[in-house]
């Protein structure tokens, strides 16, 4: 079995299994922990619980203006790499072809130029994030190995992906064989590494974010406070 067949076959199956089962285990392990009902009477006029939770999730999308520049800078940088990564992952034509092969779903691709810009912006913003993680004393106090591993594991698929982009996606897709099997296999393997790491590190915030903010929304909307 050559490397590409391995990456497209067993490695993909195993990494997807770890991703799905690991994430479910992680979520269940947290969400099934004991729950303490709030028996205090709600503030008069408090919204329905679900609405309070939803509002808190919504508020988390952008910092309050009172918190000024610091919050804004890091939020914007966060959005750049989240959106950049999402665009590249879901919008690049060869990725869509790959997803179609695996799960049978597809959608229109974005132009290559948009992809190159999105990938470039993601890389710059990830480098900025790393710079501030290494230099900012606050981040120095609170960072741990998970942050560094996750950072590396997120940037690797972008870098290895750039390495296989030698021609327009239309040309890549028009061929029925892969002309750079090893770089492509490595690219795929880095994605699989990300899937395997996902349930164990901070990438889980992609799922936990909603519950974490929602729980705070429940607690405080009950008291008549919008968080």
């Amino acid at each position: 079995m050559d490397l590409l067949t391995f990456a497209r076959g067993p490695a993909l199956v195993v990494s997807l299994a770890v991703f799905v089962l690991g994430s479910l285990w992680h979520l269940a392990g947290v969400l099934l922990r004991p729950r303490m009902p709030d028996l205090s009477p709600a503030r008069q006029g408090a919204p329905e619980k679900w609405l309070g939770a939803l509002r808190a999730v919504k508020h988390g999308l952008w910092p309050r203006k009172e918190f000024g520049q610091a919050a804004l800078g890091s939020t914007i940088n966060g959005y750049v790499f989240h959106i950049g990564l999402a665009l590249v992952f879901f919008g690049y034509a060869p990725h869509i072809a790959f997803i179609r092969r695996v799960i049978g779903l597809s959608w229109p691709a974005l132009p290559d130029l948009v992809m190159y810009l999105a990938a470039g912006a993601s890389i710059v913003s990830l480098l900025l994030a790393l710079g501030s993680r290494l230099l900012n004393p606050v981040l120095g106090k609170i960072s741990n190995l998970d942050d560094i591993i996750t950072w590396a594991i997120v940037i690797l698929p972008i870098l290895t992906g750039m390495a296989v982009v030698a021609e327009p996606s239309a040309a890549v897709l028009s061929r029925d064989r892969v002309i750079y099997p090893v770089p492509l296999a490595i690219h795929l393997l880095t994605l699989e590494l990300l899937l395997i790491w996902f349930p164990f590190g901070k990438l889980m915030h992609a799922f936990l974010f909603v519950f974490s903010r929602g729980a705070t929304g429940l607690r405080f909307s009950h008291r008549g406070v919008e968080v």
Partner: peptide, 26 residues
Amino acid sequence: EFGVTTALHLESCVRCGLCAEACHFY
């Protein structure tokens, strides 16, 4: 103490450090 909300809150920190900017002591 590790009920569901506490667990969620301990799990979901992304170590962005923004909380420092809100704390009067920092």
